Amino acid sequence: MINSQLLLYLNLGIGLLLVLYFLSGRHKPKQPTRLNMRAKGSAEKVPVVLEAEGKQEVAVTSGEPREVGRSLAVMFMYNGHDWEAHDVLGVPQGASMHQVTMVYQELVKKSDARSLQFYEHAYAAISTRHRKHRL
């Protein structure tokens, strides 16, 4: 039967061995894996049409064509979780700033003090994105 003093010595010994193992330098982290984003087996060039805010550009890339576009989702972090601001306010993505402001003002009138800060963060995220892309 193991008494408490023997258990303490056993745990201290195992802990000391682990510390010595990590300090010895034998345990080295592996290098991160590099991703190869080139298409294998496909040498032909494929034109891809890129649209960015009304401008169209044609880029020639190898491999399969990809869809490239601007995301309308506005993500913000509140209470340690990621939220999509349009879903929180209940407006569709890509809604005008006037529409977002009207919905936000209605929510402020109807909400309690705890959810008010949540709505304020969502509105601030949308308005910040709007200001950045408008300039």
Rank of each mutant, 00 (worst) to 15 (best):
S111P: 13
N79A: 15
V19S: 04
V19H: 02
L12Y: 05
G41N: 11
L89R: 02
W83V: 08
N79R: 13
R70M: 09
V58E: 15
M77W: 05
V103T: 09
F118H: 11
M97Q: 09
R70H: 02
F22K: 08
P29M: 06
M1V: 14
Y119P: 01
L107V: 01
R66G: 01
G90S: 03
T33K: 01
N3S: 14
A85N: 09
K110A: 14
Q105G: 00
E120S: 06
M102R: 05
D112H: 12
V48T: 09
V108K: 13
L72I: 02
Q56R: 15
F76N: 05
P32D: 07
D82F: 12
D82G: 08
Q117G: 04
S111T: 15
A85F: 06
G63M: 03
L50I: 15
R26I: 03
V108H: 03
S96Y: 05
L7W: 11
Q117K: 12
L16H: 04
N11C: 11
G94L: 04
K45L: 11
L12R: 14
S42I: 12
T61V: 15
K110T: 11
M97C: 05
V58L: 13
E120K: 12
G69M: 08
Q117A: 10
V49M: 10
T61L: 14
M75R: 07
E51M: 13
S4R: 14
G15L: 11
H86M: 05
T101G: 04
Q99G: 01
F118D: 06
L7C: 12
Q93E: 07
G94Q: 06
F22E: 03
E44W: 07
A59D: 05
H98L: 08
L72R: 11
A59C: 12
V88Q: 01
A59G: 05
Q99F: 06
G90D: 03
G69P: 00
V68K: 00
L6A: 15
M102P: 01
E106Y: 00
K109G: 06
R70Y: 02
D112E: 13
A113I: 15
Y9I: 12
G69W: 05
E51N: 12
S4G: 10
K30I: 01
I2F: 13
W83E: 12
Y104A: 02
A39N: 06
L20W: 09
E53N: 13
S4A: 15
P29C: 02
K109D: 09
M37D: 00
K55C: 03
Y104S: 01
P65N: 06
V19M: 07
S96M: 04
M75E: 09
M102Y: 03
L107A: 02
A59N: 07
M75P: 01
L12H: 08
R34N: 00
M77E: 13
M1F: 11
L12K: 13
L116N: 10
H86T: 04
S24E: 04
P92W: 00
P65C: 06
K109N: 10
L89H: 02
V46M: 12
F76V: 07
L89W: 01
K45V: 13
L23A: 10
V49H: 06
W83G: 06
E57L: 15
A52V: 15
A73W: 00
P47Y: 09
F22Q: 06
G15Q: 09
M1C: 11
S4L: 13
L10H: 08
D82I: 09
V58Q: 14
S4T: 14
D87L: 07
L20H: 02
A52N: 12
Y119S: 04
N36I: 02
T33R: 02
G25R: 10
K45N: 07
M75F: 05
G63K: 02
